[in-house]
Amino acid sequence: MSALKIKKGANKHSAYNLRPTFSDQQETHTLAVLVDNEAGVLARVIGLFAGRGYNIDSLTVAEVDHEGKLSRITIVTTGTPQIIEQIKAQLGRIVPVHEVHDLTVEGPAVERELALFKVEGSGEKRVEAMRLADIFRANVVDSTLSSFVFEITGAPEKIDAFAELMRPLGLNEVARTGVAALSRGNA
């Protein structure tokens, strides 16, 4: 019997690459997950994404109901429609998960992110940075003679745009919170 000619690198087509012929269009969705605020719950959510090979574009978490001890995790993720459905179903299986909402499909939603920018420079660049910050409604939360720390909130795209503008003006450090999101209108 002949030995099979297995091409080099053939193994990257994993045995378990059973992805069906569903749409392969990549979509970005914002998921809101309400969970019991107990030890390890974030590890369960992150472990699910890591273990099953899903993407996390951004993730925020904080307790939102102190009495009920519930936390809200907001996850922005990218995948095919079938993968997004799987992510939601898999999240729903986690025992301390109470609710999973796909804010991208459940009607309009507001998304906000907070970012801090450290911009260093002097002279005209410093003035220009201040002027742009004003246009973007960014606040100055710290200042020295040669630097500013701006605080800006908004949709992630607005923060991206602000970062682009600040880069030539001496942008040195950025800290972003990731997206927090709520559906619009009555719950």
Partner: peptide, 11 residues
């Protein structure tokens, strides 16, 4: 009984 089993592999 597990919603994640549905549409995981086969539509």
């Amino acid at each position: 009984i597990d919603p994640s089993s549905i549409n995981k592999v086969i539509h």
